[in-house]
Design a binder for these strands. Structure first.
Lengths: 214, 214
DNA sequence: GTCTATAATCCGATAGAC
DNA sequence: GTCTATCGGATTATAGAC
């Protein structure tokens, strides 16, 4: 009755609120472990509960349902991707930054394939997460956009190129590379480094000989 | 006893063999319908059986298990993709052919998103299908490789470019475009035509100004 | 060849005891 | 808060009658 039950626990709240937060965090951590180890389809309430040392019913005290857990995992994954890109994003030279961002993106996909799959290859998640208020996804994309903005400012881009379209194209290349590597690894034998180097080289300099107007 | 029971029915066999083949075909057709309408995860033996007018148990007389049906669907899907690319592959001019192939590929992804997902985005299928004896997948990729082979023969490529790598890069762009369109459509608002035009323009001519050696 | 019936599991989610 | 027990459903696959 006297307990204030407003939204999320007011940072550093009572012991009770802290315990509740700990339980939430432990559940999410085990859920993440399951996705990483066994894939998203293995994420069931029973499995999460067992891993976290709870009964399945207890999970519903901390999360509305299974989807809520999956959603939080996806959002955390998107933040993890942003973190993975942060260091590369500090590179001063735009072209080197572009390469560093590409390598970091590819490394993330290789290090956490199931997280990547959850974020970008699972139906229903990315569609809402990216378009909505998800700051992490937008910030990650902005890192790429910044490169082409800087290139444009430096006058290094051909005339008539749209920065947004260039950033999108670059992201498309990165995603195509990472996702094909996940599903068709047997066919895509080249390393991400080589694939990225080829893609970047062609995107930036073009595959055709310059001495002719097509 | 006297019935020869060797492997697949010897084309145009007995009435009995034909009937059996018809049943197989009907089951596969209904399975395809389910994937197209409700997605791959909705492909269950019960649903297939109901749609085909059989009991679930009867399916096991024609297919070893659910995975066998999914595998055949995937192989048929890969052949459908090859068919969808065939017309564009006849374009004489290599650059126009590249654009036509890209548009046809994107159109296939849009027309049969669930087939595309089954082939290239579902874990476990593409990995084996492309690397193995699947002629359709290899033939489809060869259509792309042929373009760059022709460009090389015509002396239109920059020096030092590897044809295989170029083809791979182009496929990566196409797959990145189609698959992101499927999962992040809310974020990827541009049309496939525009996306492809931008990607092709940059891949072929480069984003950087030509008048400087980086 | 096709059916009904069923085994053996798994799932998400809830009720109610403590 | 956490548990046990359970509901109501789903799944693949098989056994045995016809």
């Amino acid at each position: 009755m006297s307990e204030v039950k407003s939204s999320p626990p007011p940072a550093g709240g009572s012991t009770r609120a802290r315990r509740k937060e700990d339980a939430r965090a432990r559940i999410l951590a085990e859920a993440r472990r399951i996705v990483l180890d066994q894939g998203f389809e293995a994420l069931t309430m029973r499995r999460i509960a067992e891993a976290a040392g709870y009964s399945a019913a207890a999970l519903y005290l901390h999360f509305e349902n299974r989807e809520a857990i999956a959603r939080e995992l996806g959002e955390a994954g998107m933040r993890a991707l942003l973190d993975a890109l942060a260091e590369a994003g500090k590179t001063v030279d735009p072209l080197q930054r572009l390469k560093a961002l590409g390598l970091a993106y590819a490394a993330f996909g290789r290090a956490e394939p199931e997280t990547y799959r959850l974020i970008f290859m699972e139906p229903g998640f990315a569609a809402t997460a990216l378009g909505g208020k998800d700051a992490a996804g937008a910030a990650a994309f902005a890192l790429i956009g910044g490169v082409f903005q800087d290139l444009a400012t430096a006058g290094r881009l051909r005339d008539g190129l749209d920065i947004e379209s260039l950033a999108l194209t670059f992201w498309i290349v990165l995603h195509g590379m990472v996702s094909l590597k996940l599903t068709c690894s047997a066919f895509l034998v080249a390393s991400e480094e080589d694939l990225l180097a080829t893609a970047l080289d062609n995107l930036l300099h073009g595959a055709l000989r310059p001495n002719r107007e097509p």
